[in-house]
Nucleic acid binder design. Structure first.
Lengths: 228, 228
DNA sequence: GATAGGCGGATTGTTGACAATCCTAGGTGC
DNA sequence: GCACCTAGGATTGTCAACAATCCGCCTATC
């Protein structure tokens, strides 16, 4: 609490975000959740009327999503949800490994105590989700875990990259969300990541992180229709 | 050459890029070159009239640049060129190190012969620029070297990340482009990177890459006004 | 003299309509 | 029956005008 008597987080967004940003977030989560199937066409008039905004801000939001790689734009054809193939899965995790490795090293070099504390929240959520068998909550917790890890690095750029990569990860997962993930195994893997981080075992942490990513790729590719 | 008798690169853009994309590229290079000073406000009507487009496509382009982190948007205030401080310099190079390290490992695991060949072009340009004392050409060659390295990894995502990071690097460099860079030293550093890559010396390459990044940070911070 | 309130100018945010382009379906000639 | 051509419908790309918001300056008041 500060002298004004308000939590700083409340007065931070003195001016709320732009319409384009809100629209982009909405569509991004919709794509992430699998509401829009991969390859589906997104009509501008349809979306704009459904979201209650004009086509101007909507097009601005679309440009962002195209830049993020979530949408594919064909001139005078329309906007389509990108379809991720096996190569994309491997590439997403290759990039994630690179970014999260760097983030982990930064955390180890800095204040890893607060980082471990921050990781406990998604770990708790993951435990609950695993016990309840809630696949969506499990994916959310997984997402939050890695986001928290990178956020703890204090690097805005690593954070922003991870943000985009995690969305793509969710797109990959949404493709085969009917198959139940090995919740217990997933939980243990994340707990071991936290343990290695807490104890400051650099090499162990990096190895476990790489292995964790490889496992995920194998799991996804195994459940993917046209995987090589 | 294919049966049609055309280079594939010529028929790739069957439909030319959207106006927003062209505008974004123009402004991006302008920011990169330092045409727009950091912190400068970019008026929409001014830019749109100067580029000969309406405000619609221009705003779409701006959204992209904001998403890339080149511009800062304040609601009902305007768009401003982001000013990069010492922390940003360190962060850009931290991210670059992470991405280029991963790219280098991919190149080493794949076809490093063609990669070395691809690196010779910017190296030649760098040599010429160093001999001629052309700072801009030197920066261009440096840019191209690292872009070629990451492109050789075959990873679209690493490539796209690098694209953005290199633009930010140029923004950092533009801040103090009056000071002449140590051209000879820079050339040798890049040649040694190529040598380690050519000979397949993994650890040596990674070490030299990290050292190369650290050197750059030190050089930039030393020439920076308010560096800590 | 310092501060609160209000006005003018300028900029951004949003909207609806117009123009260009493309895919699809139907028809025609061979 | 097949290929080509043409008209229709729908979608995106672009534009100019309207509305909302904010900053700086000025004035009036304490």
């Amino acid at each position: 609490m500060n002298p004004v008597g308000l939590d700083v987080s409340e007065l931070e967004p003195v001016s709320r975000r732009s319409t384009a940003e809100i629209v982009a977030d909405r569509i991004r989560t919709a794509i992430m959740r699998g509401t829009f199937a991969p390859g589906a066409q997104l009509g501008e008039v349809d979306l704009s009327s459904r979201l209650g905004v004009s086509r101007g801000p909507l097009r601005e939001a679309m440009q962002r999503l195209v830049a993020e790689g979530l949408l594919r734009s064909e001139r005078h054809r329309g906007l389509f949800v990108r379809e991720l193939g096996p190569d994309d899965v491997r590439d997403v995790y290759l990039a994630r490994t690179a970014v999260e490795r760097a983030a982990a090293l930064q955390v180890l070099a800095g204040d890893r105590g607060t980082a471990v504390v921050a990781l406990e929240i998604p770990l708790g959520a993951m435990e609950s989700a695993a016990a309840a068998g809630d696949a969506v909550a499990l994916a959310d917790a997984d997402h939050d875990f890695h986001a928290a890890l990178v956020a703890a690095s204090g690097s805005p750029r690593l954070r922003r990259m991870t943000e985009g990569l995690l969305v793509e990860t969710r797109m990959c997962l949404a493709a085969f969300q009917q198959t139940a993930p090995p919740a217990a195994e997933l939980l243990v893997e994340h707990q071991r990541l936290r343990d290695a981080l807490r104890d400051g075992h650099t090499e162990l942490l990096l190895d476990r992180l790489a292995a964790h990513m490889d496992d995920a790729v194998q799991r996804i590719l195994a459940a993917m229709p046209g995987a090589a």
